[in-house]
Structure formats: C-alpha cells, structure tokens
C-alpha cells in the first residue's frame, strides 16, 4: 500500500473536502492513500491543525504525502501541522500550490502511476499560473 505518494485534501468546508476526495477516488480508486479534512475545531468553516495531523497520518506513505489546500488559512495551518510532525516525517510532506480539486485529481493520478513526491507536486502545480 505504501508504494504510492499519499494525498491529503484540506478545505475550510467539510463538504468541499469530501467532494474533492470523492472525485479523486473515482479517478484512481483505492490504490492511492487518501485522506481529507475540513472545518475548524468548533465545527464551523475553517481548518484545524489537529485534524490535519490526523489526516496526514491516515494518508501516510513512506514515499511522502502531498497536501492540497483551498484558502490561506488552510495553507498556514497545513504548514504548521508539517512542523509539528515527528522529524523523520517533516521532509516528506509538502503543500502543493495548486487549485484544490484539479490539483488533488492531478496529484493523485500522478501518485497512482508511482511518481515521487516531487513529481506529484510538480504535476499539481502545473495547474497554477506561473
């Protein structure tokens, strides 16, 4: 299971996170480790470092994990979560600068083909304007 890069989807909205994950599953099935999280610790719209850490754990792969985020707070909280990981995992988790839905689908497709974390990130980030 751990021969493919994992994908984590972090949205302010639990519905957006789940919806994006559904689209990823439809594309790549169950072979890519995938987790999603959305909503703040009070149950409102927002993101939570605690649940992002848990999602990274669920999608963990020895090849690393690529995170796709929506708005700014999701990025800041994801970067904070990465810093709070055990040291041996920190270098193997990246936040992709890419649109959340398209980025997740592209990243997962690349991961499904066995690409490295760096390749997965580059493919997702090709979607962003330079």
């Amino acid at each position: 299971m751990n021969d493919k890069v994992g994908i984590v989807i972090v949205s302010h909205s639990p519905d957006v996170a789940k919806g994006a994950a559904d689209m990823v599953r439809q594309m790549v099935g169950n072979e890519v480790p995938l987790a999603f999280t959305g909503g703040d610790p009070g149950g409102g719209l927002g993101t939570s470092v605690e649940t992002i850490l848990a999602a990274i754990d669920r999608a963990w792969s020895e090849k690393g994990v690529a995170i796709l985020v929506d708005l700014g707070g999701a990025e800041t909280n994801s970067e904070m979560a990465i810093e709070m990981l055990p040291e041996d995992r920190q270098g193997r988790v990246v936040v992709c600068n890419a649109p959340i839905v398209e980025g997740a689908v592209m990243a997962a497709t690349e991961a499904w083909g066995g690409a490295t974390l760096d390749e997965v990130r580059r493919t997702a980030e090709e979607l962003s304007p330079a």
Partner: peptide
C-alpha cells in the same frame, strides 16, 4: 484550537 489563520 483557533482554526483560522490566526491560530498558527
């Protein structure tokens, strides 16, 4: 516990 960008 904060949730928004102000947490980090």
């Amino acid at each position: 516990k904060v949730g928004g960008a102000s947490g980090p």
